[in-house]
Simulated scan of single mutants.
Amino acid sequence: MTTTAPAPIFDHLLRMTDHRGTFEHACFAEPRPEHGYCTDDMSRVLVVATRQPHADWDVHRLASVAVRFLNEAQDLTGACRNRMDSSGRWADEPTLEDCWGRCIWGLGTAAAHSKVAWVRQSAIVQFERAARARSPWPRAMAFAVLGAAELLTVAPELRAAHDLVTDYAASVAEPNANPSWPWPEARLTYANAVLAEAMIAAGVALDTKPLWQRGLDLLEWLLGHEAADGHLSPTPAGGRGPDDVRPAFDQQPTEVATLADACARAAAIDPRQIWPDGVRAAAAWFQGANDAGQLMWDPETGGGFDGLHADGVNRNQGAESTLAVLSTLQQAQHFSAVPQ
């Protein structure tokens, strides 16, 4: 038996994007410009656009729009604004929250993988500016480390990236020695897999096996905890604790995409079948292998549905959900048509 993941389809994302950026929200498939844009989404746009193999002109244009948006989002200190209104005015002040970390993730990915020279060059300049800062927020730092690790694969001498990874590695807390709940937090919250993925990425970048092995161990536990009855049952928007009833909703597509990214990274250093299986399970979640048996994307346009509820699907196709589909299917392409 073989499995073949659908190819990513960029039609809906392109429809959601104008000259400034990608609109954050949609009403069903219709973009809602009045809600504006956000750095979190534009960072994800830069990731999926620059790691798409054999990208066409339209996808390269997405990367160009994204890298310009992130440049405008950055303060001279490296901190980032997150929200821009529909007229192009920033609606918040620069911070070192998740938008900062995701910005660095996008820039590092673009610098490592974009086929467009000016996008690579601009991404490096912006990366070095943002990477001077450090965030107190664990997920912000974890996303930033992913970008730094990507950049180090093509520029191992880049001091800003190396220092960011080194500082992150020094900040990782020791394991909690609780075999029933080894997670470093009392509850799973959001983008959980990025914490494990960052440990793997930093461990590989620094050639520190205990760190990457800890990331693998945590990710293996998380993957088992996020599965039920042969499919993924991800942490809902309200989080999940050790004794919470399952399944639970509202399930967000971005949780599935984060898990797929982490499993793909794990597969690069650990040959066990668990990691390709994890990526394929993430792709299958969008195709209906989930707690409600519902399709979570539009296979005609590539739009992703915004949430899985106990009583059905939120069929709005916002940027975050659409990018989650694209990201997951990109990862699944690497593991398609593999014997089971």
Rank of each mutant, 00 (worst) to 15 (best):
M1V: 12
T2Y: 13
A7I: 14
D11G: 11
D11L: 10
M16Q: 07
D18I: 08
H19I: 15
H19L: 09
C27G: 12
E30M: 13
E30K: 13
P31G: 06
P31I: 06
R32I: 11
G36I: 02
Y37R: 03
L46I: 05
V48P: 00
V48L: 10
P53I: 07
A55L: 04
R61P: 04
L62I: 10
E72A: 12
A73Q: 01
D75I: 04
T77Y: 10
T77G: 11
C80T: 14
R81I: 06
M84V: 09
R89H: 15
V116G: 02
Q126W: 04
Q126V: 04
A131H: 02
R139S: 04
R139P: 00
A142M: 09
A144P: 01
L158Q: 12
H162C: 12
V165I: 12
E174D: 15
N176A: 11
T189I: 14
A193Y: 01
M199L: 15
M199C: 14
T208D: 14
G215L: 02
G215F: 00
E220T: 10
W221E: 07
L223R: 03
A227K: 08
L232G: 00
T235L: 06
P236L: 07
G239V: 07
R240A: 08
R240P: 04
F249C: 04
T254M: 12
A257T: 07
Q273P: 08
Q273L: 13
D277A: 14
V279E: 00
R280I: 06
A282L: 05
A283T: 02
F286K: 00
G288M: 07
G288I: 07
A292C: 14
G293Y: 08
P299K: 12
G312I: 08
Q317T: 09
E320K: 08
L323Y: 03
S327Q: 11
Q340C: 15
Q340Y: 09
